[in-house]
Design a protein around this nucleic acid. Structure first.
Lengths: 239, 239
DNA sequence: CGTACATTTGATCCACTTCAAACTCGGTGG
DNA sequence: CCACCGAGTTTGAAGTGGATCAAATGTACG
């Protein structure tokens, strides 16, 4: 078992004995190839997952077959917290690129909650954080225009990559233009146009899926990120 | 203490001894009047709340002062689950009408998690449910048109009222047209126009804040609710 | 019972979608 | 090795759903 739990799988602050207990219930899953499903809407719910490398998207379908991406999952993030009281997954999740995950059977995790209150708190914390992110996403979807949406996505990704030690200025955006559109509530063409506009303004440089942020201040300005979540992540998380 | 916990405050299935323990930590708060804040963004986080009667809205502000309503809280629902790992509330919540709530100091609740695993599960379940609702809201905001949005809201409210024993056909919508617009990502005028259109189609009858659903099938058809969440609520919640 | 605010109705406008077509590029088979 | 293919992306032109602006009507509440 090479899963570096303490730093990667969960933002955990457990002691060695606790990590050992958690370690015992975690399974490594074979790597997913691009396009593979981690699970499909309707599959029996058994486990949540922690992303080790790569990336995943979660999505739901409208009745007329349109896809709405609801989450982009990057390494160290948990997948499936919206399913833990369901018999079957209410959404589908598939790999955007070659991706490896740790599987955490939920019934086993549940048994640890009593013995490991810190672990329990961490899961509560992850869920609470996801709820806050969702509210932020609602704001993006209903109040922001195309440029603000794209800028917000890039700024958000930049911050997430930075937090896990990657460059906040140069990274790979594993979603296609189509998927970006689905995620942000925009047509593909609009996404493409905003990218070209941002490039002509020297805010970003794009090469296929490679993104380089050339003018972070300007990007943040356009994103108009309201301070509320930024502030929370920086200073007001309890202990 | 007159809080009928077992049926109202939480969708709990606890035994009497457990209810008694929970009962001990819950405080009744004085009723809020319309417009009163339960808490404001930035206030110290101490407690979550259960709505006893009335209704509340939670909202965040964009930097340019626009309000995005993120939740409408009806009786028996929990408020504040998106704040439980924060030092201060990341959002504001205010009463839409005269409203009474139970206050549940979170540190006390946390202490019960070890002793009362069922209670713990219920809170996990509430959070997971809220995550699913959020995803549904994202779909609404980014893929649905004005009529579908309004129809979805009315259908959703109808179901929520029904579940707690009120008429699913006639109810009071405590939000103003403005607030409905903020919640659904529409301009006030658009909300008003959809309401009149639905009335002329004899789908609903509106008298101020009183809503009567005259043609539920047609409403559901327009709402185009994708079966996924409806199905979940009906049959696939784990025990 | 009058004033402030919420809602409705009408007319115009525009950001984004939609439709259409050209282009790019990684893969693949002759 | 390179011509070709198809999916993904970009670019252009036209159309539209809902926003915005403006004004009339309705309504709650001191």
């Amino acid at each position: 078992m090479t899963c570096s739990l303490s730093s990667l799988c969960l933002p955990l602050s457990l002691n060695l004995e606790e990590i050992d207990k958690l370690d015992k219930i975690i399974k490594r899953r074979q790597a997913l190839k691009k396009g593979d499903h981690l699970f499909r809407q309707g599959d029996n719910f058994e486990s949540i997952y922690a992303v080790r490398s790569g990336s995943l998207k979660s999505y739901i379908m409208t009745n007329n077959g349109e896809e709405q991406i609801t989450n982009l999952h990057l390494p160290s993030e948990l997948v499936g917290l919206d399913s833990i009281d369901c018999k079957s997954y209410p959404i589908s999740t598939k790999a955007l690129e070659t991706t490896s995950v740790c599987e955490i059977p939920y019934s086993n995790l549940q048994e640890l909650y009593t013995k490991l209150p810190d672990l329990r708190s961490q899961i509560f914390s992850c869920m609470s954080k996801e709820l806050r992110d969702d509210k932020q996403m609602m704001l993006l979807l209903s109040k922001k225009n195309a440029e603000e949406k794209v800028a917000s996505l890039l700024a958000n990704l930049s911050a997430r990559f930075k937090r896990r030690g990657y460059s906040p200025y140069t990274f790979r955006l594993s979603m296609s233009r189509n998927e970006i559109g689905s995620y942000l509530g925009l047509a593909v063409e609009t996404v493409s146009r905003v990218f070209t506009r941002f490039q002509s303004m020297d805010i970003i440089a794009v090469n296929g899926k490679e993104i380089h942020i050339a003018n972070k201040n300007q990007l943040l300005k356009i994103a108009d990120l309201n301070d509320y979540l930024v502030a929370i992540d920086k200073k007001s998380i309890a202990s």
